[in-house]
């Protein structure tokens, strides 16, 4: 599904990713953890194609194609979805309009027929029910005046409706209370399938009590310094990031 090799990326003059390697197969859930400033969010922005993040070295292959060559909207058309750490408010555009524009743009990109308003509505209802998220928010302007929890739930609703093959969830757990965290995690779990992959990016081990990943990677200073199964989270929780940071220094040094 996704293959990242020796990825170097920078923002302005600052190099953030310094040789990152990661392979995600269909159906797998990977989690990247790491301290502040390790490059977690840079990775998600690079994957989604944000212009200000420059890839200087290495490659990213997605479904066998060179991802870096694709525009952000083309990546979405190819089934890549990024749940934003800070979802953007768009006053004047309802969630419904936003999703209609997005879904039909993706369908057009894939050469599928566009859906009319009634078909859309039917689809939205079915998908919202699958992930058990209330659709009422779609009547309001996108994210405008939403609480932190509402914004993240809304990202999950978008994900359910757009049905990506690879979903990158950037700190989808930050700022949530337990109830909201449960709703978001349940939505992710409901969408897990053999041909859909997830990349969770988080600062906290807490999320992994609700979504159990197949692999955990620890990102320090722009590189993955340790990978393992779900038990790695517990070890991290116990020993803290300092432990891997030390470990990283030893391996790098």
């Amino acid at each position: 599904m996704l293959e990242i090799k020796n990825l170097h990326a920078r923002v302005e003059d600052k190099t953030i990713l310094k040789g990152l390697n990661l392979t995600i197969n269909p159906g797998e859930v990977h989690c990247i953890m790491g301290p502040n400033g390790s490059g977690k969010s840079t990775l998600s922005q690079v994957l989604a194609g944000r212009e200000s993040f420059q890839v200087t070295e290495g490659e990213i292959r997605y479904k066998g194609r060179d991802l870096i060559e694709l525009e952000p909207h083309e990546r979405a058309g190819e089934g890549l979805f990024l749940a934003f750490q800070y979802p953007v408010e768009i006053p004047g555009v309802s969630g419904m309009q936003f999703l209609r524009a997005a879904l039909n743009a993706q369908r057009k990109y894939r050469g599928e027929e566009e859906l009319d308003a009634a078909q859309m509505m039917k689809l939205f209802r079915a998908k919202a029910a699958e992930v058990k998220i209330d659709m009422a928010s779609l009547k309001r302007s996108v994210n405008e005046g939403f609480s932190g929890g509402e914004k993240k739930r809304n990202e999950m609703l978008q994900m359910a409706i757009l049905e990506p093959s690879l979903a990158v969830l950037d700190e989808v757990d930050s700022g949530l209370d337990i109830d909201a965290l449960k709703i978001v995690s349940d939505a992710v779990n409901a969408m897990r399938s053999v041909d859909r992959s997830f990349l969770l990016i988080t600062h906290y081990q807490r999320l992994l009590n609700h979504i159990v990943p197949d692999f955990i990677h620890v990102l320090v200073n722009g590189r993955i310094v340790k990978s393992g199964g779900k038990e790695l989270a517990l070890e991290l929780e116990e020993k803290g990031y300092a432990w891997v940071e030390e470990h990283a220094n030893i391996t790098v040094g």
Binding site: A48, G49, R50, E51, E71, P72, H73, R75, A76, G77, F81, L82, F84, P87, V88, E89, I90, P91, G92, V93, Q97, F98, L99, A101, A102, L103, A105, Q106, Y109, S141, Q158, L162
Partner: peptide, 26 residues
């Protein structure tokens, strides 16, 4: 906001139009 729309599959030109419309809509 432009990037948010594009990341959901909307073409850049269309993303611009949508935001202009939203601005006028109020």
């Amino acid at each position: 906001a432009l990037f948010y729309l594009e990341s959901r599959g909307v073409e850049p030109r269309d993303a611009r139009d949508i935001l202009v419309y939203a601005f006028a809509h109020e």
